[in-house]
């Protein structure tokens, strides 16, 4: 194994972590402020990716398809919030799980109906094609660096939004006391719709960005949704800071684990066993991480302590 490979895997982990943050930021805000478990967040990710792919097929422009991804996801998100989701805010977790589970079935099948079962692909634009020298002698994909860059910008934007703006004050107030913000004269239903829309837009953007590396297909949202849930649970539900740290942690642990564990095992057993055992353990690693963190801190790293 070479240092180049390790650095490349590290950057891959970082890139994955930033994408996970786009997913989990919306999820954790929606849970923190509205108290809603939204399983359909993965569907918004998928919708973003498909909108991008469709736009790309028509206009052949990557930038236009990025624009399409988050705007379409935001529109779908807002429509769903206004028609269905808002009826769930005062329901228990079970109802929320069921309805948003049903939304996944609905959207997945609808998208399969419209686009068919075959995966679609997005092309990286000319500007971001190829690699760039990040350290002396070490090259890394421009596109993946771009993803890290986008993730970083959005993280800064979110921290600014929550920490410094009027909207942020409302969001933070809403996390502590829902009665309070209505007493302050804030239109809660508008705030909720807006927040859900922002979450949806971020998920849609992540879908398009990841869809370019992988393929765009039905069911792409669920694996990443479950990772996002792992993240918000590790980070502490409702905490953007927790989501950020846990995203990077999960991105790195998952990527490096899958890469390093088989390699470490090779030193003690034959390569094929090391490969199979190693990849089995590597794929379980983040769930083991989550279980350990929850055992030590039942409400996650930055979660509010249960009374």
């Amino acid at each position: 194994m070479t240092a180049e490979l390790l650095i490349e895997q590290f950057l891959n982990g970082l890139q994955f972590g930033f994408m996970l943050f786009l997913m989990s930021a919306g999820l954790t805000l929606i849970f923190g402020v509205m108290g809603l478990i939204n399983l359909a967040h993965g569907s918004l990710y998928m919708i973003g990716a498909f909108s991008a792919a469709a736009t790309f097929a028509f206009f052949n422009s990557f930038w236009l398809s990025l624009l399409a991804s988050f705007s379409c996801a935001a529109i779908v998100g807002i429509v769903v919030e206004k028609t269905i989701i808002r009826k769930l805010y005062n329901r228990d977790h079970l109802d929320q799980v069921l309805v948003t589970f049903a939304l996944i079935l609905f959207f997945s099948e609808l998208v399969r109906w419209i686009f068919g079962a075959f995966p679609l692909y997005l092309d990286v634009p000319e500007l971001l094609n190829g690699s760039i020298e990040v350290f002396s002698g070490i090259y890394y994909s421009k596109y993946r660096l771009f993803i890290i860059f986008v993730g970083l910008i959005i993280a800064v934007f979110l921290f600014f939004l929550i920490g410094k703006t009027n909207l942020g004050i409302q969001i933070r107030a809403g996390q502590h006391d829902r009665e309070m913000i209505s007493a302050l004269g804030v239109d809660i239903s508008k705030l909720y719709t807006l927040l859900f829309g922002i979450g949806a837009a971020l998920a849609g953007l992540a879908g398009a960005l990841i869809g370019t590396i992988q393929s765009v297909e039905v069911g792409m949202g669920e694996p990443i949704l479950i990772l996002a849930f792992v993240i918000i649970v590790i980070g502490g539900i409702g905490s953007i800071k927790g989501a950020f740290i846990a995203s990077l942690l999960v991105g790195l642990v998952d990527t490096l684990g899958r890469f390093l564990i088989p390699w470490v095992l090779q030193t003690v057993t034959n390569p094929s066993d090391a490969m199979s055992v190693g990849s089995a353990i590597g794929s379980m690693l983040i769930y083991i991480l989550m279980a350990i963190i929850l055992i030590l801190k039942p409400t996650g790293l930055y979660g509010k302590q249960l009374s």
């Binding site: 849970f31 649970v233 089995a280 794929s283 379980m284 769930y287 929850l294 039942p298 409400t299």
Partner: peptide
């Protein structure tokens, strides 16, 4: 040890652990 949404998620995580183990074994 946990409750509410954390319970939902940790049970899900255990199942996912087995799922990925089965896939890669």
């Amino acid at each position: 040890r946990t409750s509410g949404v954390y319970f939902i998620m940790i049970t899900l995580a255990f199942a996912q652990m087995l799922y990925y183990f089965a896939i890669s074994w």
